[in-house]
Design a protein around this nucleic acid. Structure first.
Length: 229
DNA sequence: GCGACAG
DNA sequence: ATCTTGTCGC
């Protein structure tokens, strides 16, 4: 476990945070397909909080994309760097996630985030932000549709429906289990939407959520418990 | 103005 | 995100 330090120039106000998003958005790369599913490394990142004690814990879990075996895992703890504000989640999660990623002994490959990338009010959600800061290919897999709309995908696993912001497809509702509520996939950085969905499906052979996020979620909770309540 | 709103 | 027991079902 390592300790995360909030950057000195981290935004303090919501207005500053939105300005950062507007400035960094241009650096998102959308014309790369990304790594092929089932090859190399895939890394899940997640964060848990104890707002009472002002403690945050992040985890990064590297899986072999073919076997889904754990290759490496790290955790980091720090102080809460921003309140939760819809649309500004990245400012709350990123400092500690970066510390966990930095501690990894191997390349993370594709990074799978809890939340959104392009599917965001300013098209710059957590996954895109993390991708721009690290240069790594990233995708976002969210459990809720946020402010977006979608039609129910067909019943079988693998079915999809567009996730819409008005007329714009900002992501996809992807069913990872027959007849179970879909997950919401969006592009982060350097990965196509088709590829992002293919990765997500490959990472979720048994449960609704990808193994990357399940593993990272369990690990960051454990780390929070050891560092706090 | 009011409500909704990733984690 | 987090607070939280049992319970129904494969």
């Amino acid at each position: 476990m390592t300790t995360a330090r909030t950057p000195a120039d981290w935004p303090v106000t919501e207005e500053e945070a939105r300005a950062v998003q507007d400035a960094l958005r241009a650096r998102v790369v959308l014309d790369e397909p990304g790594p092929p599913p089932g090859t190399g490394h895939v890394t899940g990142v997640d964060v848990a909080y104890d707002d009472e004690r002002d403690v945050v814990a992040a985890a990064a879990v590297v899986l072999d994309a073919a076997s889904l075996d754990v290759v490496a895992e790290t955790t980091a703890v720090g102080r809460i760097s921003f309140p939760y504000v819809p649309g500004l989640l990245a400012f709350r999660e990123i400092p500690t996630v970066l510390a966990a990623l930095d501690a990894l002994p191997c390349p993370p490959g594709l990074v799978v985030c809890d939340g959104y990338g392009l599917a965001h009010p300013r098209r710059f959600g957590l996954a895109s932000h993390l991708g721009v800061l690290t240069g790594l290919p990233t995708i976002g897999v969210a459990k809720n549709p946020f402010t977006f709309t979608y039609d129910e995908p067909d019943t079988p696993r693998g079915s999809t429906a567009p996730l819409l912001a008005g007329d714009e497809e900002v992501g996809r509702a992807l069913r990872t289990r027959d007849a179970v509520k879909p997950v919401f996939v969006s592009v982060g950085h350097r990965v196509s939407l088709d590829n992002a969905c293919a990765h997500t499906l490959a990472l979720a052979p048994a449960y609704r959520l990808p193994e990357t996020t399940r593993r990272a979620d369990a690990l960051c909770r454990r780390a929070l418990g050891e560092a706090s309540g």
